[in-house]
Amino acid sequence: MNETQNWIDEVLEAIWIAREKGKQSIEKVRMICQEDANVSVDVDSTLDKMRAQNLVTGEKNLLEFTSDGEKMAEAIIRRHRLAERLLMDVLNVSEQSMEVTACHFEHILNPEVTTSVCSFLGHPPLCPHGSPIPQGDCCHTYKTEYLKPLVNRLSELELGKVCKIAFITPSFHKRFDRLTALGLITGNEIMVHQRQPSFVVRIGETELALDEEIAREIYVRSS
């Protein structure tokens, strides 16, 4: 892939992140690109090329995606964040290595490989930093011919099987703090002790009763 296309991908990604932060200005996009130590981008000239290709509209204070730009940006963000999950959950790489490698992956993963990675991971909703991963068709219609997910909901774990907590997607932040205080932390081993009359898990020597809703928000992988 040539430098121009790499720059376009990086700026599309930066605009998406800026939109998530609620400020889609050129200044914010420049700041996000500057914070990315893995690449140096000429934002202004790249935006000119993107306007010429009908990927973005708007000027200084509000950049907007066109329909084509939205699709491209969504695909880039999806590839990057799935790559982060793969690198952290499966390969256990450091955060620094995860970031650098995910930036490379976002440019080279084709749709078929991206779908396989997503299915393999169990269609994760969030990246390791807690940002949403855009869904693909595979997330809406799970196909049994895909690889068995490496990561599953705690609510689906068979009785007596010991797994490690991969990530948690709580409905609200206070719940995350509460679960952390109870020992439900990424990397800790957990086992489903019983399902009825209440859902009970065991972490080390501690047994906890959880609501079924909370069990669906905890994702685990094999130890």
Rank of each mutant, 00 (worst) to 15 (best):
M1I: 00
V11W: 06
V11P: 00
A14C: 04
I15W: 09
E20P: 00
G22W: 00
Q24H: 11
S25M: 09
V29Q: 00
Q34T: 13
V56R: 06
G58A: 01
L63I: 02
T66N: 03
T66P: 03
T66Q: 06
G69R: 00
R79L: 05
M88T: 14
V93Q: 11
V93K: 06
E95M: 14
V100P: 00
V100A: 04
C103L: 10
F105M: 15
N110Y: 08
E112R: 11
T115C: 11
T115Y: 05
H123A: 08
P124L: 00
L126G: 01
S131G: 00
I133F: 01
I133N: 01
C139K: 05
H140L: 15
T141H: 11
K143I: 06
K148D: 13
L154W: 07
C163V: 10
I168N: 09
T169N: 01
S171M: 09
S171F: 03
T180F: 13
L182Y: 14
I185A: 05
I185W: 06
T186V: 15
G187W: 14
N188F: 08
M191Y: 07
V201A: 07
G204D: 12
L208P: 00
E212W: 10
I214K: 07
A215C: 09
I218P: 02
S222Y: 10
S223N: 09
